[in-house]
Amino acid sequence: MVEKKRKKNLSFLERIYVVEIFKGMILTFKNMLRPKVTMQYPEVKFEPPASYRGRPVLVQERNGVERCVACGLCSRVCPALAIEVQAAETELEKERYPQKFEINMLRCIFCGFCEEVCPEEAIVMSKDYELVFTNREDAIYGKDKLLIPVDKLQDRLEFLRKFK
């Protein structure tokens, strides 16, 4: 029989295994006594940190108007072609607003490029990760689902100002 060459041969203690098994059991028991990290979702909800990239949403100013000026940059940069914007004219000073703004959540890959490119800080990644739909049509989110009041997005906006 050919003797197998190892880089480092096992010592005597290692070769009898008893000590090693004992060491392993210590680790096991230690972990049994640690606090549980498993979350009882959906009874308990996960509150992500500000850096989390949930579904992209549109910022709605306090006066109820969307911040977006329908420049179409998010739509252009989106690698998944998830965003469709149709601009139209408004009497407001911003001149231009999105008459239609749709994100196809089946296409979106949560990359955050739209948020990064937006010149108005009008589209941001939210903390919302619960996306449920039963058909393709429902997966296309229009302005009704996308507009979120700016006060609810402060976390992310501050994070962006600090790190973007």
């Binding site: 329908a70 420049c71 179409g72 252009r76 601009a87």
Partner: peptide, 9 residues
């Protein structure tokens, strides 16, 4: 044509 479309679309 105003605001109807971005030229690259």
């Amino acid at each position: 044509f105003r605001f109807k479309s971005r030229v690259w679309e």
